[in-house]
């Protein structure tokens, strides 16, 4: 278990993070959410011992990272936002180097590397120079590095940034698999990603923790609103008028033209009522065919709006 107690980091007169306190339970997958610049990376850098806090402390099972850095660092694997790779090495050389500095016993290196490479699916590129790998592979090599030494806790800072959708899905499913044997902290600004893999969420905003709870509890806090987006063929004004006439439609917003001859709209209603059927009937009666309809995701901004009450931020 990691206890983060009253962590602050000051740069000049400004706090990058202030009085950050939360616990990471053994075996959980914790989402650490925040906008870019909210203080996620600073917190992760302090927890992993890369930088030091101005105030507060980090304890891993009672061991302070400042007082016993070796003990703590040996038990944490870290994938920073930019994977710490040496471009002039091959994947194998790099991971062997990681084994050496993470004190993997020489006799166990070969088997350990095989396991890790198998897990992150980089067996086929082990002999290649890291600089020649695609971004997705580089990310996986970075992840492999974090897994070297089989640490109890794995901290991943924005692991899917810059990856294509397929790679994102692969990394997410990998994180889920890792969560079976490790404690995982996933720092991200993408709510859907966190919703997909995490059980509990800590939200940081402007350097302060604004919420920490099970994901379900958080979304239900914001959840008095239900949103759907839809694409309707027809005239914009006519569609808008028809949608506004719907009972329960609190807010209707035009999202512009995404497909010729049709308009996209966003409709907000109370969560308690499902207007999809009346919506379909009304539009059908008006001769306005629905080309697409889907519930809109609750975004990080939505939760922030609710939690911070800062509409300009969203």
């Amino acid at each position: 278990m990691i206890e983060i107690q009253g962590l602050s980091k000051r740069y000049g007169n400004k706090y990058a993070i202030q009085n950050v306190t939360f616990t990471i339970q053994k075996g959980e997958i914790l989402g650490f959410l925040g906008r870019n610049g909210a203080g996620k990376t600073t917190t992760m850098n302090i927890v992993t011992g890369y930088i030091s806090a101005s105030e507060g402390r980090v304890l891993l099972d009672g061991h302070d990272i400042l007082e016993e850095p070796r003990v703590v660092k040996r038990r944490i694997g870290y994938l920073p936002e930019q994977p710490p790779l040496y471009m002039d090495m091959t994947v194998d050389e790099y991971l062997k180097f990681a084994c050496a500095i993470k004190e993997v016993k020489p006799g166990a290196v070969k088997a350990h590397l095989n396991d890790v490479c198998e897990l992150v699916k980089i067996q086929d590129v082990r002999k290649r120079l890291i600089k020649n790998l695609s971004k997705g592979y580089k990310q996986r090599v970075g992840l492999a590095q974090a897994l070297i030494g089989n640490p109890e806790m794995i901290i991943l800072d924005e692991p899917t940034v810059g990856l294509d959708p397929r790679q994102i899905l692969e990394i997410r499913s990998l994180i889920k698999r890792l969560g079976q044997d490790h404690t995982v902290v996933l720092s991200s600004h993408i709510l859907t990603e966190v919703a997909d893999v995490c059980e509990r969420v800590v939200i940081i905003n402007k350097g302060k923790i604004v919420a920490q709870d099970k994901l379900g509890s958080l979304t239900s806090d914001v959840g008095d609103t239900f949103r759907i987006t839809l694409r309707v063929a027809g005239q914009e004004n006519e569609i808008k008028r028809t949608l506004r006439s719907l009972e329960g439609a609190r807010y209707v917003d035009s999202l512009g033209v995404k497909e010729d001859g049709s308009y996209d709209f966003m409709v907000e209603t109370d969560r308690s009522m499902d207007i999809r059927r009346p919506l379909f009937n009304t539009l059908a009666k008006a001769g306005l065919p629905i080309l697409m309809l889907r519930p809109a995701d609750i975004t990080l901004e939505d939760i922030f709006l609710k939690l911070t009450g800062d509409s300009e931020e969203a």
Binding site: Y50, Y78, P80, Q82, L85, M87, A98, I101, K102
Partner: peptide
């Protein structure tokens, strides 16, 4: 290029 993060977060 931030590779120092590997060294500084290792037990070294």
């Amino acid at each position: 290029n931030k590779s120092e993060q590997l060294l500084l977060t290792s037990p070294l």
